[in-house]
Amino acid sequence: MTASDVSQEVVTQATGKIDAPVTESWRSRRRQRRAEAAAERLSKPAASTIAIVIAVLWSIPTLGLFVTSFRTVEDIQSSGWWTAITNPLFSQYNYQAALVDSGLASNFVNSFVITLPAVLIPITLALLAAYAFAWIPFRGRNTLFVAVFALQIVPIQVTLVPLLTLYVDAGVAGSFWTVWLSHSMFALPLAIFLLHNFMKDVPPSLVEAARMDGAGHVTIFFKVLFPLLVPAIAAFGVFQFLWVWNDLLVALTFASNDATPLTAAVADLAGTRGNAWYLLSAGAFITMVVPLVVFISLQRFFVRGLLAGSVKG
């Protein structure tokens, strides 16, 4: 059991005792029954078979891409990847050409330089904002929260030209700063909303108890709420990481020539008239590796994050 699990347990117990014991226990019993029923249905052989078939079908294109990325130029152009099973001939040349000759290696570094701050900045800001919305009563709190929430529906495409104009006027266009700033802006509404939902889930009694003990906002935030929020932060972090890493539009619009991330470089990889399209499978795999690792290692947070925005029950 991890530390956060322990505190989660504490919360559940506390909730059961102080808040509304009857409804909560009834709810949790219902939830448990439902989970058991679902687990039973899912573990049936038929369900497992279907799940495996779907998993295999879904993985075949990726496998094909992977095999193709190691095939020779001529083979890629003349036959399908499955023929490699009977006639295996592989080379690492596509990767060499993509990484070294086309310089994807430096774009790989750029992708990290762009992604890490673009994940950390919105999480930091959103945590503070979500705390304020959840636990600091002030005039117009709900209106402001709805306003922030509503910003989610603004499509980022309509903001591109005005935003770039602002950057040009401010004289910062073309640096990493603009990419970080843009990603942070686009991420904040969802980040605030998600983290606010998580924070609201923490029983008020816990916060009130801390306040009784003389804790200020800072202490409450770091000592009480933050440990409980680690899964939520990780969930949103994964979200944001994948979004920024895979982003092409923001990078194309705001990143200057020497700050282009992998996605933009892969888009140019095939050459002016697309003659070198055989490099794309290797380029795609280089781009995929990091999100795959992040997703697989943090997938339980990802699923939790997906559910956080939905109806609870």
Binding site: L160, L164, T165, Y167, V168, A173, N257, A264, D268
Partner: peptide
């Protein structure tokens, strides 16, 4: 001369020009 090539040129040029960049 800073040479800057992009296959997304045709979509990006109007954005850059309209934004004063």
């Amino acid at each position: 001369v800073n040479y800057n090539g992009s296959r997304q040129f045709e979509a990006q040029l109007p954005v850059r020009v309209n934004a004063g960049n």
